[in-house]
């Protein structure tokens, strides 16, 4: 008995000791200069994916501009929902930020029920990369151009097998919008990511794939895959010969599925801290070494500041609202 009492006493003393430390700690942290410790960036996807590689690449170059390291923390789950929920609830002390990906974030919010985060829970720091959707086929495919695909799909409704990341993904949204405007119907088969979808295409399981440009680049450069059309208004350097949707079909198709990758912070983070972060990211986006490596990986860097990024979210949300019923039709 005595022994147990002694343990209890010791424990109480320990708690008191620790508590006194905790009381002192916060007051030391609220100094004016920011940042004084590494900033954590939540990536709501598994390591190795598009967002992950982008942020890790940024992390490699941001330390001089930020003054502290940027640590990438993967928090995958439910197509990003788990990570974004965590970001929306994170402490607003400026030391937790997170990767954003439009329109995926908006799709999750508008297609699912009971999503615990809202688009207003974030302050958008910047947008970093655009990753448009393309149609690709195997190098030796019977389809020479995007028009061939449309002709085939018109002649054989629902027979064209299209692999793509899904379900309810930005890729599928782009494909559905394109199919709707081109008045074709195809069979979209969801794979768990652009990687598996392209593998299925390489293995000739499907007729074509819809994918983000960055995932297809290595295969295009390796000569195994051929891009047919780019769903974006401007040409991309990596595939300069590929026609845009406007050139290929003569009609305007919104680049609604284009992945826009950036970073955001919880909404209560101080404005000065947001500005510091924005500046640091901007410095990376302008650094020649970073740009060179990003280019060699096929990442199209387009920097957009905080205000522009916020406007972009509203704009994209409206577009998604307009087209989301396409997911139901099938």
């Amino acid at each position: 008995m005595n022994g147990q009492k002694r343990i209890l006493g010791t424990l109480l003393a320990l708690v008191a000791f620790v508590a006194s430390f905790a009381a002192v700690a916060p007051s030391m942290a609220s100094a004016a200069d920011y940042p004084t410790k590494p900033v954590v960036a939540i990536v709501p996807f598994s390591p190795g994916g598009g967002n992950d590689i982008l942020l890790r690449l940024v992390a490699k170059y941001i330390t001089p501009a930020l003054g502290e390291a940027l640590i990438v923390e993967n928090k995958p789950g439910a197509g990003g929902q788990v990570g974004w929920t965590a970001l929306s609830k994170a402490r607003a002390d400026g030391y937790t930020i997170g990767a954003t990906s439009l329109p995926s974030m908006i799709l999750i919010k508008s297609l699912r029920e009971d999503v615990p985060f809202s688009l207003d829970d974030f302050q958008y720091i910047c947008n970093f990369q655009v990753d448009p959707i393309i149609w690709v086929v195997n190098a030796d495919s019977q389809f020479g151009t995007a028009r061939d695909i449309v002709d085939f799909a018109k002649a054989n409704p629902k027979k064209l097998n299209v692999a793509g990341d899904g379900p309810q993904s930005n890729v599928q949204l782009q494909h559905l919008v394109a199919a709707k405007l081109l008045e074709i119907s195809s069979n979209f088969v969801s794979y768990s990511g652009s990687g598996p979808a392209l593998t299925a295409l390489l293995g000739k399981q499907v007729d074509m794939a819809a994918t983000t440009l960055s995932s297809a680049i290595p295969h295009i450069e390796g000569g195994r895959l051929r891009p047919l059309v780019l769903f974006y208004s401007a040409k991309m350097e990596a595939i300069a010969d590929t026609p845009t949707a406007k050139e290929a079909f003569g009609i305007e198709i919104p680049s609604i599925g284009m992945a826009l990758r950036g970073v955001a912070a919880p909404k209560d983070v101080k404005a000065e801290q947001i500005a510091t972060l924005e500046k640091a990211f901007k410095a990376v986006a302008e650094s020649p070494e970073f740009l060179e490596q990003a280019e060699s990986l096929g990442l199209a860097i387009q920097f957009m500041g905080s205000q522009e990024s916020t406007a972009l979210v509203t704009e994209t949300a409206a577009l998604v609202e307009q087209y989301k019923s396409l997911f139901e039709e099938k």
Binding site: D52, I53, R56, P218, H219, E221, G222, S296, L297
Partner: peptide
Amino acid sequence: GGLMIHGLKPGP
């Protein structure tokens, strides 16, 4: 992912 960050392009 590590390869790519080191500037290597996987593939053929």
